[in-house]
Simulated assay, not measured.
Amino acid sequence: MANKFAIITGASTGIGFELAGLAAKSGYDLLIAADEALILAAADDLRARGATVEAVETDLATIGGVDKLLGAAGRRKVDLLCANAGRGLGHAFLDQDVADWRRVIDTNVTGTVYLLQKVLKEMVARNDGKVLVTGSIAGFIPGSFNAVYNGTKAFIDNFTEAVRNEIKDVKGVTLTTLMPGPVETEFFDRADMLDTSVGADPGKSDPADVARDGWDALMAGKASVVSGWKNKIQKAVANVTPAALLAEQHRKMAEPGGA
């Protein structure tokens, strides 16, 4: 009997790579994807642990890139999807190039939503499947000097909640939202945020811990999980704090030169 099959995006490093390791350990065959050649090295690492892995380097910010990923899956039934691919962008919005902020939106929103629609539709049709989407507690906070990124995560947090309600009567299909805070990954380097207070903070979460929190919630069929007790507190506080104050607090974290 064939192993169950999982697709995991943004799996070259960080949370996505750790999720891939957990899926492999649980007996899933893997199709992993990212928009960088490092995904091939990640696949080699996972194979060295005994996993069956196929890797695809593709631009998940585009419809064509997502179609390339789905094409690599062929006709295999997708038992598990971890839609984890994401991109950040620091500095003031008015100073950002259009191509840069659009890539953040297209990766975090357009590509993610398209992938979810394609995979979830088939899961719902057969009443079977699990989906984990990486949102963020950033979606609850107006992100001064990280405005586009936080806006995309607000969309993802809200969108997954809505779709979860739409499919609530479908037996056998679960949609879980993972909402971490700052995580010790390449995110801050790639987002050009190493000179910020949050980028330089040595107390960021371990991606392995975040992935484990997401995996456990996914396997339990939970609607969502905030990873880390500090982030749980921050989310609770954000719900009762005026937006202007949250934006000012975020400025202290993300304004360049604040490290």
Rank of each mutant, 00 (worst) to 15 (best):
A61Y: 01
L115V: 07
I156H: 08
L94I: 13
L70N: 02
F187L: 11
I105K: 01
V119P: 07
V124K: 12
V119M: 09
E122Q: 15
G86C: 06
D128A: 15
I156V: 15
V66N: 03
A147W: 06
F188N: 12
L80C: 05
G64L: 00
G139H: 10
G139E: 11
D157W: 03
G64D: 15
G181K: 05
G90V: 09
V198C: 03
V104I: 10
V131E: 06
V148Y: 08
G151L: 12
L80G: 05
L70G: 07
P202Q: 05
E184Y: 00
V104F: 03
D192P: 00
T185D: 04
V104N: 06
A147K: 06
G111Y: 06
P180I: 08
T174G: 01
G172V: 06
G203Y: 00
P142N: 14
A73I: 07
V148W: 06
G135K: 09
D169E: 09
E166C: 07
Y149W: 11
G151C: 13
N150H: 15
N84Y: 04
T107M: 06
G135L: 12
F155I: 13
E161P: 00
K171V: 07
A61P: 04
N146R: 10
V109G: 03
K153F: 10
E166R: 07
D100W: 01
N108K: 02
E166F: 05
T196F: 01
I105Y: 05
R102F: 02
G139M: 11
V133A: 13
V109H: 02
D169K: 06
I137G: 12
K77C: 04
A147C: 14
G181H: 07
G199E: 03
A191S: 13
A162Q: 04
R75C: 00
